[in-house]
Every structure is written in structure tokens, then in C-alpha cells.
Design a binder for these strands. Structure first.
Lengths: 131, 131
DNA sequence: AGTCCTTTCAACCATTGAGTTGAAAGGGGA
DNA sequence: TCCCCTTTCAACTCAATGGTTGAAAGGACT
């Protein structure tokens, strides 16, 4: 159900070209020719990719006059984001609980490193910009 | 580069079964038989899915004694999350700028609705639990 | 040793998906 | 009107993927 729409969005981003398209559309709308320009690929192929993105709801294109701009739809990103964040939080809550138990078992002197030490997440590290 | 690793993670989640596996692993580690149980699918098929998840870095499995538990790796989730959030923020910054310009053009009386009205994001709505 | 369960490899089949070529509609603008 | 550019449909090739069956290692337990 929910899973189906979700995995369609994931599938839409499963291709590097489409990933790149989305990244570029985040900078601003673009016509198809503009979008297609960097890729060594037929225009028709780009349209196909576009259709996949559109079917997944990641992108919309007003059917109006000829040069139809392509626009990124943010809701699809939100869909993934809430899903990811939900599961990430579950894992981390569980890990905190686990660490607490371990610490208690050790007479709370120093935490036992069982595998990787459960640090909290980097909280959106400040990467410069590599699209 | 980055894009390649990213789209591999996305590709790993492009399948509903794998999506579900990850969701279930967020609740806790599991052996392969436990993981495979709900699906009408050969055990070998489940192993294949597991390998995809592992190659994408979403999951790790200690090579040790026999019943090897499968563990969710949170860093892969972080990878997607920062990517999504970065692009989402760009779009929203751009939209805010656009709205400002439109409002000014209208003599800042009431904002013009050009398409969908650029509301801010739902900020992780409190869905109960539908995996 | 032998037995049982778990894990993995290999070959095969059917379906999907990315990309191509070719051709056909759709709309401006001279 | 005719021309050009944009958009889309259709059919084809080729590689990748989800699934199967069959068999083989790897450890654990008697």
C-alpha cells in the first residue's frame, strides 16, 4: 500500500541519471532540452526518464504551451524523508536502550563497545557541494 | 561518484520486499529464517535480496557462528537523508524567494497562488504506524 | 563418525528497464 | 500556408533483476 508508492519513488531514484536530474531540478525548473543537454543520450531516452520521475510523483509538468518546464515536486521527497527518519529513529532508540543495559551490566563504569559504539547521527554534516 | 553509491542505496529500496525487510529490521536484528518467514518466497530468494541490501551498505551481517543475525546499518539511511534534505531545502529556499518577488509585484496585498502555493513542509507528520 | 539446519553457489527462466531508431502529432512563427 | 522545434508513440535490442530448482559447503549437536 504505502510501501508501493514509496518503493516507486525509490525506484525512480535508483538510476544515476535520474538522481542527477533531480539534483539539477532542485536548482530550478528546466525545459527538457536543457535537462537533456549534459547527457550523451537520445532526447527520447530523457523523456522516458522524465516519465518515470513523473509517475513516481517526483516531478510535474504543466500541460500547456510548448516549451513545458519540468518542476520538482517536494512532497515526494517528504514521503521518503519521513519514512527514512522514522526507521532511523527506531534503530537509534533501540541502540540507546541496548547501551544502557550493557552499561548497567558492566556496573556502569565504562560502556562496552559492542560492534560500533552507537554514536548519535551526524545531523546533516556540512558537505560543501557535490550534487 | 557520490551519486553512484546513492543510487545503489535507492535501488536497494526500490523493491517492496526489501523495503519491508528494512522496516522490520528497524525493529530489531533478525536471523535470515525469521526474516524470510512472512514472504511466500524461497529462502534463496531472500538471500539474494539480503545480498542487494548488503552491497548497498544498508545491512551488515557478522561472519561468525551459524545463526548470523542481520543488522540494519544506519549510515546508509543517513546518506539518503542528507541528500534528500539538501535538495528539499534548496527548492524551498527558491520558492520563498519566488513568493517574495510575486508579492512585491502585486503591491504586497495578497500573495498570488501560482500553482500550489508553496507551503512549508509538514515536518515529519505524526503517523501512528503503518510500516 | 553421522545428521540436521543454516548459508551459499550455479544454472536457468521470465520480466522489467535503459537505450536505440523511426516516425508521427502539436504548436508557434515566417 | 509551410517550416521548424518540441513532444510523444511504437517497436526493437540488450543487460539487469526477481524468482525458481538443485546441489554443495559450514557448523552444531549426538
Amino acid at each position: 500500500m504505502t510501501t508501493d508508492a514509496l518503493s516507486r519513488v525509490f525506484a525512480a531514484l535508483a538510476d544515476p541519471t535520474r538522481c542527477d536530474m533531480v539534483a539539477r531540478l532542485a536548482e530550478g525548473d528546466a525545459t527538457v532540452s536543457q535537462l537533456a543537454e549534459p547527457y550523451r543520450m537520445t532526447l527520447q531516452a530523457v523523456y522516458k526518464h522524465l516519465r518515470v520521475l513523473e509517475d513516481a510523483g517526483l516531478v510535474s509538468r504543466p500541460r500547456g504551451p510548448q516549451p513545458r518546464p519540468v518542476r520538482l515536486e517536494v512532497q515526494a521527497l517528504d514521503l521518503m524523508d519521513t519514512w527514512i527518519e522514522r526507521h532511523r529513529d527506531r534503530v537509534e532508540r533501540r541502540n540507546r536502550r541496548l547501551d544502557a543495559v550493557l552499561a548497567e551490566m558492566n556496573g556502569d563504569e565504562h560502556e562496552q563497545d559492542h560492534g560500533d559504539g552507537h554514536r548519535s547521527r551526524p545531523e546533516a554534516a556540512g558537505h560543501p557541494d557535490d550534487s
